[in-house]
Write a protein that binds this DNA or RNA. Structure first.
Lengths: 236, 236
DNA sequence: TGATCTTTTGTACGATGGTACAAATCTCAT
DNA sequence: ATGAGATTTGTACCATCGTACAAAAGATCA
């Protein structure tokens, strides 16, 4: 079933290398970078620890390669979807399409790589929480363009909301997205089994619905036209 | 300035113990649990590594103690604010008050402990991302009651929204809250300096405003009364 | 087949990790 | 001041870490 690639152009037997990448991705995404040892990865991949060094030189190099594999395809997919979304006439529909263009590739496979985009997005969430240096560099130089493109697109469809507010709200979107992937079981638990936090389709719909409404909230300056906030700053 | 406590009731010199707790909190919150060594903590606190073992027995014990110090006060504060919020008559205002009661203690000092609640909340975010076992246990048994109380309160003020949707949206709220504390500089960067992601007051207002709107979004079942979602599922 | 190159294995080294523990030091009621 | 208990220090043990490297095994093609 697994097609042997006749080994010509580059003459590789990609099995082991791919297995290591997949195992590392899974382990890093669930346990963080520092908690996972090269030996753990090798064991999970059915490989020898030395093999990891051979293919990726260092542990950082392994992480770097994981990012390289995913960033391109996911950003490409987002660009395509964003371009399509910007063409939607109705402003309300367009906003939803834009949000969907941002969210969907993060959950579903951004390429034909095994495991889909969800695992990689979860990895990004965990690395960002750990303050991983390798990840921080790659992310800033790879995703900031995309983020700006989305912010601009959203701003176009919500001209009355200041750009600053849109930045905040898209930041919240990414945080919610990350957290949905990091602790999906919390949703199942708090809903007492009525919702499956691990179901991507479910998460996407909920996230899109909630986020669109959040973006459409009135701007902060002109917030609460009748009363201004008074409550809950006081004690009992 | 620092009051020496006459050392009677329990006869301690709390300086070192407190210094270790503070240093650990700071280091864990910024670098994660596994990346920080006991020696790092001791060094940052101006203490000897053995001192950490003496006061907290193990590294896990140290983390446990950090949680113990913060969970109680923060939950208490939230309960007080929630009780007050539930008394608000106007449904819209009540919802905002409830959200504020959830958000504010997470950002500001939940007790008189140094550093305020923001550092501890960031710590929780990082631990949750790392899948830390100690933290997971404590959190589930300490915060789930509070979470349910908030979900119920929100449900009361939004009777037409299914509980499931409210669970999802409060999950998104927590994710957004966490992420705001984990990478505040991203907000500053993406807003090109127009917003200060590190300013708690700013973050709170933005988060409350956006979240209230998200909670008020139509329920998923009856979503999009005119058209249903069609866009952005198609390619270019 | 045998020469050559790629990949995998096995093992080892130096660094660093958490933790234990005895000795030194400090605190304070008597 | 002195003795008892609390705290701090210094050090050492053992496990595990990332990585290096030589040898074994496998693949490729003249």
């Amino acid at each position: 079933m697994v097609r042997k690639p006749t080994s010509k152009e580059t003459a590789r037997k990609p099995n082991m290398r791919e297995a290591i990448l997949a195992a590392a991705e899974e382990l890093f995404a669930t346990n963080g970078f520092n908690a996972v040892s090269v030996r753990d990865i090798a064991h999970a991949a059915g490989a020898n620890p030395g093999s990891v060094t051979y293919h990726f030189k260092t542990k950082d190099g392994l992480l770097l390669e994981i990012y390289r594999r995913h960033c391109g395809p996911m950003n490409l997919r987002r660009s395509e979807l964003l371009t399509a979304a910007r063409r939607v006439r109705d402003l309300q529909d367009r906003l939803e399409a834009i949000v969907r263009a941002y969210v969907v590739p993060a959950f579903t496979s951004g390429s034909d790589l095994a495991g889909g985009g969800a695992r990689f997005t979860r990895l990004r969430a965990v690395m960002s929480a750990e303050g991983n240096e390798v990840a921080r560099k790659i992310i800033a130089q790879t995703f900031d363009d995309t983020s700006h493109a989305f912010i601009d697109a959203i701003h176009d469809s919500l001209p009355h909301v200041p750009r600053t507010d849109i930045v905040w709200r898209s930041h919240f979107l990414l945080g919610a997205l990350y957290y949905s992937l990091v602790t999906p079981e919390r949703v199942s638990r708090l809903s007492r089994g009525e919702a499956d936090g691990g179901d991507p389709a479910n998460a996407i719909e909920q996230l899109v619905q909630a986020t669109v409404a959040a973006f459409q909230a009135p701007a902060l300056d002109q917030a609460a036209p009748t009363r201004r906030r008074t409550v809950a700053t006081t004690k009992t």
